[in-house]
């Protein structure tokens, strides 16, 4: 199967899943660590899609050097939000600004978040960030791309000044929910050079992601914490 086909197959799976009611589709992501080359294209693609300011990366990639010389190797671990089935971050939010959508995505209501950052403290994966109003070009001078509206959660969020959400809020990966709802794959899936990231509906046994994860050895990050992550790593 060539890589172009994978994207097409996953897009078809996504559009098929969208025909089901929200609660009947359960989104998940799989990352094939053997294929990840540590190019950070997913990180940068995500940053441009969600207009994230300095210091905020929804999907950083951990680089580790393993082994001892001369037997050394680099290992990469991309880390999106795990969209846990039992997320520690939602329970601690004092105002229910963050919650799980019926399709399994943990979302943040930017209009409700008080910016207490308790969810940042509670997340075991460090997947949440606080948007404290930083700009790449300094405090006062802002380039147009820095104040352009992102389309997160299907709305327009322009970072014009520090009284405009999402400034002051917690932010995180949401599997590009605004793209999924339009039938598009998350940006990190489409920008992955090695086609190492798979996405789809795990409640559909015929979906590509179910077949791909069934075929190989897999693990979930910090699974022992009982968070039941929706991101599966293929090794």
């Amino acid at each position: 199967m060539n890589t172009e086909n994978i994207i097409e197959i996953m897009t078809a799976d996504l559009q098929k899943a969208l025909k089901k009611p929200l609660k009947d589709r359960q989104w998940a992501m799989a990352i094939d660590l053997k294929k990840c080359i540590g190019c950070h294209a997913c990180t940068t693609g995500c940053m441009s899609e969600n207009m994230t300011p300095p210091g905020i990366q929804y999907r950083p990639v951990r680089e580790e050097e393993i082994g001892t010389f001369p037997n050394v190797a680099l290992r990469f671990l991309p880390r999106p939000c795990m969209q846990c089935e039992k997320p520690p971050c939602t329970a601690v939010c004092p105002v229910k600004a963050t919650y799980k959508r019926e399709d399994g995505i943990t979302v943040i209501d930017y209009n409700k978040c008080v910016g207490c950052r308790y969810c940042l403290v509670a997340c075991p994966y460090g997947a949440r960030s606080a948007d404290v109003g930083n700009y790449y070009t300094g405090k006062f001078k802002k380039n147009t791309y820095e104040v352009e509206a992102s389309e997160e959660y299907g709305k327009q969020w322009a970072r014009k000044n520090h009284f405009c959400s999402p400034i002051g809020n917690a932010r995180k990966c949401h599997f590009c929910m605004h793209r999924i709802d339009k039938g598009k794959l998350p940006r990190c899936v489409t920008t992955c050079l090695g086609h190492a990231t798979f996405f789809g509906d795990i409640s559909d046994p015929d979906s590509f992601i179910v077949k791909a994860t069934a075929k190989y050895n897999t693990f979930k990050f910090k699974e022992s914490l009982g968070t039941h992550p929706r991101v599966i790593y293929i090794v």
Partner: peptide, 17 residues
């Protein structure tokens, strides 16, 4: 981050927190 939204402690309480 947004002290002006403290009202949500009353309007949208989360007893698990």
């Amino acid at each position: 981050g947004r002290v002006d939204r403290m009202i949500y402690f009353i309007l949208s309480p989360q007893p698990k927190s």
